[in-house]
């Protein structure tokens, strides 16, 4: 049986597989090509033009080569946004991973109902919905009637009121904190199940050999959870790059919280001197896509080496 399947298929059979395969793929491909691949190609093409809002057609404008990219390189606002985007990713990805690993290792041995209660609680901010979460955090951060200032002042940690979202020193941190609460839910679910699936015979063998609990954790469990960790790294990175609602609703990119995501939106739609500069905004998108691609590749490589 196994030998047979390795042989090249007969031509008739291959044709049958082709037809069936593509027919099954067809509905999905219509959506995937129509609403992901084609827009991506148009995005790359328009990034090489000076298209703006008023140009008709899918691409429009005239071809200007790599001018948009050269301009981006000298655009201070864009570089600041790029820096902020990376700060968000670099701070939130490791903290989310470490935090969810710790929480999962603390809860995975608990009894069924307690375990699922904890899991649900950490998942709550995700299902509450980004806008509802943002609205309530905006209130909590509020300068005058927010509970942050009230509680911290009560504890004597701060003296005066702090305008959390308006102050360059705090705003980005405040956004990262909200992002953190909405990001740990899924990693915790994944780690809990990964910890539950670790091969117990290996743990027992290690314990018989006199390994300490820490050693068992890092040498046995952590090693076996590598695929899960990789998956979590990738989804958390993507999530952190995509944080848009928080910025659009809380600071509108002010107080040092501008990110590339928000800047693309702002360049394309907001009434500024550059309003509707689609070519330029698309160039930002292309740069971002390249960065994300590189980052994912590095993560895969690192995880594979381990």
């Amino acid at each position: 049986m196994a030998k047979q399947s390795k042989q090249p298929m007969s031509r008739a059979l291959q044709r049958r597989e082709n037809i069936a395969g593509y027919l099954f793929m067809l509905p999905c491909l219509i959506f995937f090509i129509g609403f992901v691949v084609i827009p991506m190609i148009i995005c790359i093409l328009t990034s090489l033009t000076d298209t703006n809002m008023h140009d008709p057609g899918l691409i429009g404008g005239s071809f200007i080569g790599l001018d948009n990219f050269v301009r981006l390189w000298g655009d201070k606002d864009f570089l600041a946004a790029l820096k902020n985007t990376f700060v968000i990713v670099i701070v939130s990805v490791p903290t989310v991973c470490a935090f969810s690993l710790w929480v999962s290792s603390a809860i995975y041995k608990m009894k069924g109902p307690v375990l699922s209660a904890f899991r649900c609680i950490f998942y709550l901010p995700v299902v509450t919905g980004s806008v509802a979460v943002t609205v309530v955090w905006a209130w909590m951060y509020n300068n005058y009637y927010g509970i942050f200032n009230y509680v911290l002042k009560g504890l004597g940690l701060i003296e005066g009121r702090i305008n959390w979202l308006g102050d360059e020193r705090f705003a980005l941190g405040c956004i990262i904190l909200i992002l953190f609460t909405t990001s740990v839910g899924q990693p915790i679910v994944l780690y809990v199940s990964a910890l539950g699936n670790v091969d117990t015979t290996l743990i027992e063998a290690a314990q018989v050999d006199g390994a300490t609990e820490m050693q068992v954790f890092w040498k046995v469990k952590w090693a076996q959870m590598m695929p899960t960790t990789l998956y979590i790294l990738v989804i958390t990175t993507i999530n952190s790059f995509q944080c848009f609602a928080l910025i659009q609703l809380l600071t509108k990119g002010g107080a040092g919280t501008d990110t590339v995501m928000y800047r693309i939106y702002w360049t394309a739609f907001k009434l500024t001197e550059q309003a509707g500069h689609f070519g330029y905004a698309n160039a930002m998108g292309v740069v971002l896509a390249i960065f994300i691609g590189l980052l994912s590749a590095v993560q895969f490589k690192l995880a594979k080496e381990k």
Binding site: P39, M40, C43, T46, L58, V234, A281, L288, A289
Partner: peptide, 15 residues
């Protein structure tokens, strides 16, 4: 899968 939607926002809108 790793591509954020914001990247293709404008072409998608025109489409």
């Amino acid at each position: 899968m790793a591509l954020p939607k914001q990247v293709i926002l404008i072409p998608l809108l025109k489409e």
